[in-house]
Design a protein around this nucleic acid. Structure first.
Lengths: 136, 136
DNA sequence: GCTTGACCTTACCATGATGTCAAGGCTCAG
DNA sequence: CTGAGCCTTGACATCATGGTAAGGTCAAGC
């Protein structure tokens, strides 16, 4: 299977497949005589694994860990669980940051008339809460 | 005021101050005879504006719009409000994506024993739900 | 005046994950 | 043999930021 087929079958772009190989996330696959990469079903399966993990927001570094665990018959499920839980924690932290931004912005938006007049508490806040509505 | 003082006073790193100037987000400031950038209080005020907007998650492109509105005496607060509301929408979309990831992961983590055994529904799901627990 | 240290300058490289584009080789069908 | 469509590598762009290197400047102390 050429890279184009592997890309379609896995949902990973050909560009990214080459990139993952280049950075060592995936092993180099065999080449045809003319230099084309040749993919097996097992390779595509691995690509799909990476794709799913990306969809869940894992970084490539985390995915490298997950791939290693996947291929380790003597792994402990506790190790996998820990990686996933740490990732959940990271996602929640990021969400909390976003929530704080939303809260602040929502309060400002609510207090802004949103009409033809220039007075705007949003800009006033960004400008430093001193109510200055011009740069200075 | 040199760039170091401006940096401390605004909370924007000197590196970023130069970068904002380079990409045209901020105008070039006057230079001393020896080439040092010289900042006024108004410049620092503007830097603080940028800093606050970054803290609220606005992109530099959005901040360019906000800066233009800030400096426009004939602006309509509706224009500012619209920018802020669009940004809130973007933040919420990002949060929803993260929430979906968390939901999926949480379900997987809950169903994972997390002990010394290798069986792990997290890996099984990443591998394609077929229950395969090895790469193939 | 000279040295020292803190500051400033520009320029380049790196990040993470992805896209785009270009120049050229391969393959297969007609 | 030719053309279309695939493949190859490589370079460059994104976005915002950090780091580092090589060199100029300034102010204080001796």
């Amino acid at each position: 299977m050429n890279i184009g087929q592997a890309s379609k079958a896995s949902g990973v772009s050909a560009k990214m497949i080459r990139y993952y190989e280049q950075i060592g996330l995936l092993p180099q696959v065999v080449r045809t005589g003319s230099g084309y990469r040749a993919y097996t079903d097992a390779d595509v399966h691995k690509l799909r694994f990476v794709r799913r993990a990306r969809d869940l927001g894992f970084s490539l570094a985390e995915i490298a860990d997950l791939l290693a665990l996947w291929g380790d018959r003597s792994r402990k499920s506790a190790d996998v669980k820990r990686v996933a839980q740490q990732h959940i924690t990271q996602l929640r932290e990021r969400m909390d940051e976003l929530q704080q931004m939303v809260d602040t912005l929502q309060a400002l938006v609510s207090s802004c008339a949103g009409d033809h007049r220039p007075d705007c508490p949003i800009l006033a806040d960004l400008a430093g809460s001193a109510g200055k509505s011009q740069p200075g």
